[in-house]
Write a protein that binds this DNA or RNA. Structure first.
Length: 190
DNA sequence: CCGGTGATGCCCT
DNA sequence: GGGCATCACCGGT
């Protein structure tokens, strides 16, 4: 699977294809590696998307060409990581909702302030905290040229991917634009 | 185990 | 000023 190809597609095409891929994060304390197990697609014609109302200072990265990070702050305390997809001007992104810890577990435990492996990265806010994302300074930066790298994973079979309604939104809540790896214990909710 | 709820600050109208 | 692409804790089972 060619990641450049995936990131050039729409968020709806990219979101399921990012499952199984790896995020590698460089921190001052060492390297963290996780495997993406849950994603959600957002795009400009989607009332639930930050890009729905057009370009703003915060959402500008969503309107750039695929392959950048879009990181936002919400609920007064949480950060969330998105991977921008699609051509420039389209306002698309894939929220990384959950991942499986592979390396740098001790660093993530310190960042999260807990020990339980099963609760380290099973939610967007938890994942950002585990990876040491404590501000929005990475938003707009190009993946693989920043301290976060995206690497291809083993291809998944169609029957291993579940599509379901997205979580935590009120608008367009019926659209099945959340994707996760079936039976994976690190998915935020089943 | 589960549902309800308070925390907390930025963005955008 | 309203509303969050959330989380952890609390109380009742």
């Amino acid at each position: 699977m060619d990641l450049r190809e995936v990131l050039s597609r729409s968020s709806l095409e990219a979101a399921p294809r990012l499952l199984g891929c790896y995020l590698v994060r460089q921190t001052p304390h060492g390297t963290i590696k996780v495997r993406i197990v849950e994603t959600e697609a957002y795009h400009q014609d989607d009332p639930a998307s930050h890009s729905f109302r057009g370009i703003t200072k915060r959402t500008a990265p969503m309107f750039q060409a695929g392959g950048r990070l879009y990181i936002y702050f919400t609920y007064g305390m949480h950060y969330a990581i998105n991977i921008v997809t699609g051509p420039a001007g389209r306002g698309e992104g894939v929220l990384i909702r959950a991942a499986e810890p592979l390396a740098g577990v001790k660093i993530m435990q310190t960042n999260r302030g807990i020990r339980d492996i099963n609760k380290l990265t099973n939610g967007p806010g938890k994942l950002a905290q585990a990876l040491g994302i404590f501000d929005t300074s990475l938003s707009g930066q190009i993946l693989n040229k920043s301290s976060i790298l995206l690497r291809p994973g083993e291809p998944l079979k169609d029957e291993e991917i579940v599509a379901a309604p997205r979580i935590g939104i009120t608008k367009a809540a019926d659209r099945p634009w959340r994707f996760y790896i079936k039976d994976n214990p690190f998915v935020s909710r089943v």
